Simulated scan of single mutants.
Amino acid sequence: MGIVEFMTQWEQLAKRLERLFGDSTSSLSHHPVMKWLHGARDAYLSGERVQGCARAAFAQFAVEDLERILAHDENLFRHFKKALRRDRSATAYFGIRQEIRMAASLITKGIDFNKSEAPDFTLGELGLECTSAHLVKGAPTNRSLAYKLASAIAKKSQTAYSTRLNVLAIDMSNLLFHEGVGSTTNTLSWTEELQASLQEGVNRSPFQAVLCFAYAWVQAGPAGGATLSNYYSRVDRDEMDSLPKAFLDNHFPSGSIWVYAQLQKHV
């Protein structure tokens, strides 16, 4: 992808973000999605072209999810619009981004849901709660990853939920933005040891299952470009109710869909 093509697509994406939020690019300079766009442009112009395309893909993914939500429910879009403007920290953003991704996913799947608080989404007796897990900057280890995920599960376990049966969705995207690609890749490989460690935490929690999400990208062709996908791994409690099991089996099939080759490059 040449610089002219990249900047043309970059400007088109910036205009889509402007239309969504009703502000100019300059007014949106501190918006979390615009920050991804600025990072994409800076990386591309500094010679890191694939990295620039990957960051632009991350921003585009967010814009597409927001556009899908707006087309489906203006009130729900206004909720997320306000949340993105209010909470600009990285910690807050990844949690909100998981809610946006979950809402867009449910809409795409044609699933009826209500936006609520504790849990974030209700589907009759079933609730979906969203959160995020973070690691300090540096090369993470399997142990610290398990600890952070277990901490996220334990923290959300303290909340009182309005629904009887609940599933927790954890966004781990910031794991992909740390230094040390090699060690991060090994960390994100869904090992039996990590699975067993999380299984204990899920069984102790009030959740029927935990879905762990992360974004990863692969280079799209020799010209540069990048394709971004949202991957997940699912951990069910040993004695799982039939209602959430049927829902998850249909819409989030059991097991890990992360593939080592797909985690060779990170945004």
Score class of each variant (00 low, 15 high):
D241W: 07
E200R: 15
R16L: 08
M172Y: 09
W190R: 01
E67M: 11
F247C: 06
L243Y: 10
V136D: 06
L188M: 15
A118K: 13
T108K: 15
N174C: 00
N142H: 14
K15N: 08
A104S: 14
H251M: 01
S229H: 07
S151W: 12
I107E: 06
A104C: 05
Q158T: 13
R19C: 06
L37G: 07
Q158G: 05
L20G: 00
W36D: 15
E48F: 11
I96F: 07
F77K: 07
L145W: 15
L66T: 00
S233N: 04
S89T: 15
I69L: 02
L248D: 07
K245H: 09
E200W: 08
N75V: 05
T25I: 12
L228M: 12
E193H: 10
R204A: 14
F252I: 03
F61V: 01
R88S: 09
A71T: 02
D42L: 09
R55L: 15
S46P: 01
W217Y: 14
P119T: 08
M1H: 11
G127Q: 01
H72L: 01
K155Y: 05
R16T: 01
V202P: 05
R49S: 09
K265I: 10
C130R: 00
K109M: 14
I170E: 08
A54S: 14
D238F: 13
N174V: 03
G22E: 06
T185C: 04
L228V: 03
V33P: 04
Y232T: 00
P244F: 05
E117Y: 09
A154D: 14
K265N: 12
Q60L: 06
F113G: 10
I153S: 03
R97Y: 10
A216M: 09
D65Y: 01
Q195E: 15
H38F: 12
Q195K: 13
L175Y: 14
G225T: 07
I96R: 10
I257K: 06
G224V: 05
F58D: 06
A196K: 13
A83S: 15
S105V: 03
S197K: 09
S254V: 06
R16Y: 04
A57L: 02
P140M: 00
R41T: 02
D87N: 15
A83G: 04
Y260M: 01
G47P: 13
E239M: 12
R55Q: 13
S162A: 12
S27V: 08
I170C: 04
D241G: 07
L165E: 13
T25F: 05
A220P: 01
G182M: 11
S157E: 05
Y260F: 11
K137G: 02
P253L: 02
Q158Y: 04
F21M: 03
A56P: 01
A59V: 07
A104N: 04
Y161I: 08
G255E: 02
G224P: 03
L123P: 04
H134Y: 10
V259E: 13
T184R: 05
N230S: 13
L194I: 13
H134A: 11
T141F: 02
A56N: 06
D112G: 06
L28G: 07
G95C: 08
D73H: 11
F80G: 00
K156V: 07
A152N: 07
L37I: 07
S116Q: 12
A104Q: 04
P119C: 03
N114K: 14
D238A: 15
P253M: 02
E11W: 10
A209Y: 04
F77G: 08
